[in-house]
């Protein structure tokens, strides 16, 4: 597998755009399950009520890879997530996420040979303000 060629062909091209309506109850349950205690994340009546900073890490687009990408990621596992928080997400917001591949590389580890595909989602709110950038490392075993 030539990951250098995959990188040249596929990295940087937006392949998916999807919108999400943000609901208070879902934000609240996410925060409580993670052990949050601060009212700005756990009390919908708090004037500063907002989603926890990594809330966007649970959002998925309509597809994880561009159409025609020559690798099946059905057997992949989650290698890590990096969330850059830019601005609060509030109940009632409409968040739009655009996806592109940010990187492709290979390495070996306890699981054997692996290809890492870094899927980047950029989230903007209804005012076109960037609210978060999430890098998701998908790992596919190759041997």
């Amino acid at each position: 597998m030539d990951t250098g060629e995959l990188k040249r062909q596929w990295v940087g091209k937006t392949f998916d755009t999807v919108s999400f309506e943000i609901e208070a109850e879902t934000m609240l349950q996410f925060a409580l399950a993670c052990g949050e205690e601060l009212p700005r994340y756990t009390d919908p009546e708090d004037p500063d009520f907002q989603a926890v900073p990594n809330y966007t890490s649970c959002f998925h687009g309509t597809r994880t890879l561009p159409e025609g990408f020559p690798m099946n990621m059905e057997e992949s596992f989650d290698g890590g997530k990096c969330v850059e928080w830019k601005a609060p997400i509030r109940a009632g917001d409409t968040i739009t996420a655009q996806s592109h591949l940010h990187d492709v590389y290979e390495k070996t580890g306890r699981s054997g040979g692996m290809v890492f595909i870094v899927h980047r989602m950029q989230f903007t709110n209804q005012n076109q303000k960037l609210v978060a950038v999430v890098d998701w490392k998908m790992i596919r075993k190759t041997g």
Partner: peptide, 19 residues
């Protein structure tokens, strides 16, 4: 993230990178 907030309630978490 909750661990950080419990320790520093006024903190703003700008980035969290987990492996």
């Amino acid at each position: 993230v909750a661990l950080i907030h419990r320790w520093a309630p006024s903190a703003t978490v700008h980035k969290i990178d987990t492996i």
